[in-house]
């Protein structure tokens, strides 16, 4: 097992922790935190590949991808704070099972 594989294993473990969190918890905030963990795991992969793969034609691609990913995560966080607050205002709690208003 070389270093790149160790990094990839770390990121897949992190991804699965995020997945389990997002699937098993019913609190909206925790579900979103799980998604945030999965996003971080993906970013870890980009940096790992950038660091350990042979240099290609564009040496900074992995770094730039992660930078954009972080920027998008910031945008996402703003939207989800608004969503959580809107949800709370509508049903006085943030449990996902009860957010069934649009269910047919």
């Amino acid at each position: 097992m070389n270093m790149l594989q160790a990094c990839l294993l770390l990121s897949s473990a992190l991804f699965c922790i995020g997945l389990v969190t997002a699937l098993s918890r019913s609190n909206t905030i925790l579900v979103l935190l799980g998604i945030e963990i999965m996003l971080n795991a993906a970013n870890l992969n980009f940096i790992a590949f950038w660091r350990f793969s042979p240099a290609g034609s564009a040496p900074a691609t992995g770094v730039i991808f992660v930078l954009f990913s972080i920027a998008v995560a910031a945008a996402e966080a703003a939207v989800w704070l608004a969503l959580v607050i809107a949800l709370y205002r509508h049903q006085q709690n943030i449990r996902l099972q009860e957010a069934t208003r649009l269910k047919g």
Partner: peptide
């Protein structure tokens, strides 16, 4: 994921870090 990662022959180049 773990099996996929461990089975794939990943071409690494730690001697010359792109870093």
């Amino acid at each position: 994921l773990a099996v996929a990662v461990l089975r794939t022959p990943l071409d690494t180049n730690p001697a010359k870090p792109a870093g």
